[in-house]
Computed example of a mutant assay.
Amino acid sequence: MSMFTGTVEYYRKYRPGIPESVAELLVDSAPQRRPRRLLDVGTGTGLVVEALLHQFDDIIAIDNDADMLGAAESALRPQLSTDSKLGLVVTEAEDFVPPSDWKADLVTICRAFHWLDQATMLQRLDAQVSQDGVVAIFGDSSFWAAGSPWKTAVRAIVKDFLGEERRAGSGTFQHHDRPYSEIMRESPFSDVEEYTVPVHRTWTTESILGYLYSTSFAAPQLFGDRLHEFEETVRKELAKYSNDDQFPEDNEFVIRIGRRN
């Protein structure tokens, strides 16, 4: 069972997309040519591909969750230009093998690197990326990182219902202590630049609950028959922090761009 079983409808609707400023940075980092090829690793419901769809004309997106890729297919295929290619592949990232004559100009790994065998993945990409291509590893902070009083309160409720350790589906989340840039510098893509893009969002109670149900640490099935109780507890707690159901969040995307030396 995928760690994201039961989350797909919430993932597509409530996960924040990729800001235009982040998409522009990614596009500008990759070589300009035709065909221009993108490999998106851990694509989920295709949020990264959607942000870059018209900047690349040969795209492969991979994920180990067939339901997620089904949602990506439904969202992306109608937007695809007639002269562009999109392949969606169900596979573990570390097992993926592209077509023999296919090399990516840009590899994107967004909000997914922590799930991977990181060193192995970067080594495997050496054979899958064009000589002047780049690997981008990036993401923003999840609600688990808290950072504001209302998020801290929501995280405390999740812990009350599911335990102190952060869940990851049926297991628990294994934290990675090493900075991603450090890991990249030990890989074939050792010339690393790091960028930070601030993001401001405003949430509502509905979108907060929807986001939580899109995660591996608060997927709906984890609550069993207490799901309604959890939801009501969150609603009552959030009401203490806003009179108009508006919850501001200051977040940031950290983007690491790796090239070969």
Rank of each mutant, 00 (worst) to 15 (best):
T7P: 01
Y11T: 02
R12L: 13
R12E: 15
K13G: 02
R15W: 08
P19A: 08
S21H: 11
E24K: 14
S29A: 14
P31V: 09
R33F: 07
L38K: 00
V41S: 04
G42W: 02
T43E: 04
G46H: 02
V48F: 01
D57S: 10
D57A: 09
D57N: 14
D57K: 04
G70K: 03
L76I: 01
Q79C: 06
D83L: 09
V89I: 15
V90N: 13
E94S: 03
D95P: 00
P98E: 12
S100C: 05
S100P: 04
W102D: 06
K103E: 13
K103S: 09
D105L: 08
V107R: 02
C110V: 11
R111E: 15
Q118T: 14
T120L: 15
R124P: 00
D126G: 10
Q128F: 00
Q128S: 14
V129L: 04
G133E: 00
I137V: 15
I137A: 07
G139I: 09
S141F: 11
S142W: 00
S148Q: 10
T152I: 11
A153Y: 10
V158P: 05
E164I: 05
R166L: 03
G171M: 06
P179V: 07
Y180W: 15
S181T: 14
E182K: 11
I183N: 05
M184T: 12
S187P: 08
P188F: 03
T196Q: 10
V197T: 13
V199A: 09
H200A: 14
W203D: 03
T204F: 11
T205N: 08
T205I: 12
G210M: 07
L212M: 07
Q221N: 12
L222S: 04
F223E: 00
D225A: 08
D225V: 05
L227S: 01
L227K: 12
H228A: 14
E231G: 08
N243Y: 07
P248Y: 11
P248L: 13
E249N: 14
E249Y: 10
N251H: 14
E252N: 14
R256Q: 14
I257L: 13
G258P: 11
